[in-house]
């Protein structure tokens, strides 16, 4: 026969699993098209972070996440890893030297070897990411104690993360801007504790990654089903 607290704990666990063990997320994806897009077989895209010289704080793990998400699936795009791309064009995509606007592209193409290297890699689009995920609010209190007979926590804590990312898509075919795609995701996580803390985590950055990648794939392929 089970003791009463253990049964209560099991019920709580089941309840939490039932609600999906996650916090609340609201997401808004938008795009702004400036030219006709499309991508041929063999053509590739590169995901880059805007320069930290400009104060951008886009996380390396977010860039990798978008790279992986864009490449995944039957309609995945061919993505060149950004470090491999930057090394292959050294030093023209270093934080100091990378073009900040499309009007810098013609000059970049005139640099020795650059146009050929881009053509060899069949790079069609460069996607510049900027933005980050920040904790914007939080509250509650949680305390834990432990003794010879055991331990436990009691209380309730919450916090809210905002993930704001913007992707500028440059089309190297016309050396022009194809448009922008943005992800604005807000997630609130909860941590109630009744003996055992039960984390209900909102995976805000992951939602922003998947949302932006899906939107980018549609934007570039110009195919709503992509």
């Amino acid at each position: 026969m089970q003791s009463r607290p253990r049964a209560l704990l099991r019920s709580l666990t089941v309840l939490c699993l039932a609600v999906g063990l996650s916090g609340c997320i609201t997401a808004r994806m938008q795009d702004n098209r400036e030219s006709v897009t499309g991508i041929a077989e063999g053509e590739s895209v590169v995901i880059m972070a805007r320069s930290y010289h400009l104060g951008n704080e886009t996380e390396a793990e977010y860039i990798s996440c978008v790279e992986n998400a864009l490449a995944r699936g039957s309609k995945g795009l061919r993505v060149i890893p950004h470090r491999e791309f930057v090394d292959s064009l050294f030093p023209w995509f270093e934080p100091r030297t990378a073009p900040a606007e499309t009007k810098g592209l013609p000059k970049l193409m005139e640099r020795p070897g650059v146009a050929k290297r881009l053509a060899d890699q069949q790079v069609r689009y460069i996607i510049w990411l900027e933005g980050d995920t920040e904790r914007v609010a939080g509250g509650g209190s949680l305390s834990c104690a432990a003794g010879p007979g055991g331990g436990g926590c009691f209380g309730f804590a919450w916090w809210q993360n905002d993930a704001d990312y913007n992707a500028s898509v440059w089309d190297l075919k016309g050396l022009e801007s194809a448009g922008t795609v943005s992800a604005d995701v807000s997630g609130t996580s909860f941590l109630p504790a009744l003996v055992v803390p039960i984390p209900l985590i909102a995976r805000t950055q992951a939602a922003a990654c998947k949302g932006l990648a899906d939107q980018l794939r549609m934007f570039i392929s110009d195919d709503p089903s992509a």
């Binding site: 010289h53 934080p95 030297t97 073009p99 606007e101």
Partner: peptide
């Protein structure tokens, strides 16, 4: 200060 080189852009 560090900075971006506008000549390269």
């Amino acid at each position: 200060a560090g900075g971006i080189d506008q000549d390269a852009i």
